[in-house]
Simulated assay, not measured.
Amino acid sequence: MDHGGDGELELYASVAARLKQAHARVRALDVPDEVSVALARKLLVITAAAKRDLADAARRLDRLMDDLDAGRIPDPGTP
């Protein structure tokens, strides 16, 4: 049995759960609509990245959540 696949499945499940939490958190933010849309787009980009490079998507999600935790709300004009 390939245990590398098990690790990838665990990472996938973790990223999927964290993305779900991140979407809920973004929806709950009291920010202007354009900021909320920009954050939702970032989450969609991370979701798409997970299909190609799961570890990279996890890192991107970590950075976004760290920014939100620190109160750093991205400028809606940045990708």
Rank of each mutant, 00 (worst) to 15 (best):
A58M: 00
A16Q: 08
R60Y: 11
I73N: 01
K20T: 14
M65L: 14
V37A: 14
A70V: 04
A70Y: 07
H3P: 02
A49I: 10
D6S: 09
R18D: 02
A38H: 08
R63H: 11
R27P: 03
D62P: 01
R25L: 11
A55W: 07
E10W: 00
L29H: 05
R60S: 11
A48I: 09
A28I: 11
L61T: 07
L11W: 05
R52Y: 15
G77D: 07
D6F: 13
A70P: 03
H23V: 08
A24F: 08
R27C: 00
L19Y: 05
R52C: 10
A49S: 13
G7Q: 15
R18H: 04
V15L: 04
L44Y: 11
L68G: 02
D67E: 12
V26Q: 07
L29A: 03
L61E: 02
L29T: 03
T47A: 11
Y12L: 15
A22H: 01
A24E: 12
D67L: 05
A22K: 05
P32I: 02
L68H: 03
A50P: 00
R27L: 10
L19S: 04
L29E: 03
V26T: 00
V35M: 01
A50C: 03
A13D: 13
D53C: 04
D69T: 02
P32Q: 02
P74N: 04
P79F: 06
P79Y: 09
P79I: 07
L64S: 06
V37T: 07
D2F: 09
A70L: 13
S14T: 12
D69H: 02
G4A: 11
Q21N: 06
S14D: 10
Q21H: 05
L29D: 04
E10Y: 04
T47H: 10
L9G: 04
A49K: 15
D56I: 10
L9Y: 01
L43Q: 02
D33M: 12
D62H: 13
P32G: 03
A38Y: 07
H3R: 14
A22N: 00
A57T: 07
L61V: 10
E8P: 01
D75W: 08
G5S: 11
K20D: 05
A49H: 09
A16G: 01
V35H: 14
A16E: 08
R72F: 14
P76M: 06
R25N: 04
S14N: 07
K51T: 13
V37L: 14
Y12W: 15
V26C: 01
V31D: 00
R63N: 10
R63Q: 11
K20P: 02
V15K: 03
A48G: 06
D6N: 12
A48N: 11
L61Q: 03
V31L: 06
V35I: 01
L68Q: 05
T78W: 06
G5L: 15
A49W: 07
E10I: 12
P32T: 03
A70D: 15
D67Q: 08
G77M: 02
